[in-house]
Amino acid sequence: IRCIGVSNRDFVEGMSGGTWVDVVLEHGGCVTVMAQDKPTVDIELVTTTVSNMAEVRSYCYEASISDMASDSRCPTQGEAYLDKQSDTQYVCKRTLVDRGWGNGCGLFGKGSLVTCAKFTCSKKMTGKSIQPENLEYRIMLSVHGSQHSGMIVNDTGYETDENRAKVEVTPNSPRAEATLGGFGSLGLDCEPRTGLDFSDLYYLTMNNKHWLVHKEWFHDIPLPWHAGADTGTPHWNNKEALVEFKDAHAKRQTVVVLGSQEGAVHTALAGALEAEMDGAKGKLFSGHLKCRLKMDKLRLKGVSYSLCTAAFTFTKVPAETLHGTVTVEVQYAGTDGPCKIPVQMAVDMQTLTPVGRLITANPVITESTENSKMMLELDPPFGDSYIVIGVGDKKITHHWHRSGSTIGKAFEATVRGAKRMAVLGDTAWDFGSVGGVFNSLGKGIHQIFGAAFKSLFGGMSWFSQILIGTLLVWLGLNTKNGSISLTCLALGGVMIFLSTAVSA
């Protein structure tokens, strides 16, 4: 259960009878995928790494000078000259100064003066180019299975845990398959586009800190620079940016070097996208990844198990997540596992009318040892309800109150669905055939309105939902006002479609 501690969480529900669903994975976010007769899966884009970055340009932001020398000439005696002028490691300046009897010249006039100092770069920052084909995306998957609280967001041991898996995709191999043991396998067909235009970005490294910066900004930095990788004795261009020549006297000129420019660069980098280094690879934390999940090989585990009949206890007080759902960790005293956990939410304890829904599909106890633990997640209705676990006299209950409203949740879900469709863009549509167009249209309606429909009408039977949709269509056909007619027709059509397409 990876997503319960992530604030940016998206719930995606598969269409009834569908074998695939489109998701948008982004750094700092987590996606929970639910479908009829399929286990619930949490998917998170953990890291995006980039390798084989080529150094484009380096800037010196802290330097020192040494070996200063000057040469001067009297008027009419030609130009002052130093051998160091031809050495690229030196920074030199030529000027004219007033000369006369007082400073060793027989004539009054302008004399030539040249001053040089050896330039040494102490600290530099480097910009590297990123090729999209060198990106690698690491995705962690977790099935809502027989897990306890100690396994949440624990990325170790996934090789031997059938509840978890790690997959890596690249532009050259965008397809992967996550093996989930008894739950089958989940196929991923990803489109490795981060949403960032790397043709316009460089990877900047300064003092063990890293950013993504725009090329134009990078090339306009007014500091000494050299092109390409460091060859040991780089040729620094624009050395004068960190060196200041003071007022010249008759035979000498003082040279000083400016202080470190790291603070000024940090100020200019305010708002830039931060990154990290992992050995020789860069780690990015921006952008998104679009994936199509193929769920035809994914299956529920323990459908044929019998119900657990022994007593359950709450190991922890049920807690609310950031998303309005409830996490419950229970301990089973029996030894008759594997068995299914009898769990439901009810409005009252007399009729036990089921409300809400299970995020953890078909929760089971897989071990036959005593005191096995299991964590599950529920989506309670707004208002008061009861969490009921167990059967008969051994069942345990917990009162729950959820604040908020169904309308607010439906609106929030619609906005999130619209954002998801905007990110998917043209990849969500198939114009290759008439059937493809209608299929894409259905998927689009489901992406945007599916979660809201589930919130508003999830407790009704599909037949009642179709009746309401048919009534809206009838009202649309018999209303003389054009805008009201079109609105009723659209709402009725969407409702009829979703009542037959969205899983219960």
Rank of each mutant, 00 (worst) to 15 (best):
I1A: 01
I1F: 03
R2T: 06
C3Y: 13
G5A: 04
G5R: 05
V6Y: 03
N8C: 06
G17H: 04
T19P: 01
V23A: 09
L25G: 05
H27L: 14
V33I: 08
A35Q: 04
Q36N: 08
K38Y: 07
P39I: 07
D42Y: 09
T48I: 09
A54Q: 09
E55P: 02
V56D: 04
R57W: 09
C60N: 07
C60H: 07
C60K: 08
S64Q: 11
I65E: 01
A69L: 14
A69P: 00
L82F: 11
L82W: 07
Q85W: 07
D87H: 06
D87K: 08
T88N: 15
Q89H: 10
V91T: 10
L96Y: 13
V97H: 05
V97F: 07
V97N: 10
V97K: 03
D98W: 12
W101T: 02
G102K: 03
G102E: 10
N103V: 03
N103A: 02
C105W: 13
C116P: 06
K118D: 02
K118Q: 14
F119L: 11
T120S: 05
Q131K: 10
L135M: 15
L135T: 01
Y137N: 08
M140A: 14
S146C: 15
H148Q: 14
G150E: 15
V153G: 04
G157S: 14
E159S: 01
D161N: 14
D161R: 12
E162G: 15
E162H: 12
V169A: 09
T170E: 05
N172G: 01
A176C: 12
E177W: 12
L180K: 09
G182N: 13
G184S: 02
C190H: 08
E191V: 06
G195H: 03
L196S: 07
D197M: 14
Y202N: 10
Y203K: 08
Y203F: 11
T205Y: 02
N207F: 02
W211Y: 13
W211F: 13
E216M: 10
E216R: 02
P222K: 09
G232C: 00
T233R: 08
N237K: 15
N238K: 13
D247V: 05
D247W: 08
H249Y: 12
A250G: 01
V257E: 01
E262C: 10
E262L: 04
V265W: 13
V265N: 12
H266F: 13
A268H: 12
A268K: 12
L269F: 14
A270Y: 14
A272D: 12
D278H: 15
A280L: 13
K281N: 07
G282P: 08
L289G: 01
R292D: 01
M295Y: 13
S304N: 00
S306N: 15
C308S: 12
C308T: 05
F312M: 11
F312W: 11
T313D: 00
Q331M: 15
Q331R: 09
G337W: 13
Q344V: 13
Q344M: 13
V347E: 11
R357Q: 06
T360D: 05
E367G: 12
T369A: 08
T369R: 00
E370P: 10
P380F: 13
G383C: 04
D384Y: 10
I389R: 04
T397Q: 04
H399V: 05
S403H: 09
T406K: 08
T406L: 01
I407Q: 04
I407S: 04
A410S: 08
E412N: 09
G417Y: 08
G417L: 02
K419G: 00
G425K: 06
F431R: 03
S433T: 15
S433Y: 02
V434C: 12
G435F: 05
G436Y: 07
F438P: 00
N439L: 13
S440W: 11
L441N: 07
G444K: 13
A451Q: 00
A451I: 08
I466A: 12
L472Y: 04
V473R: 00
L475N: 09
L475C: 10
N478L: 00
S483N: 09
S485E: 08
C488G: 04
G492P: 04
M495W: 07
I496C: 14
L498M: 12
L498V: 01
S503W: 07
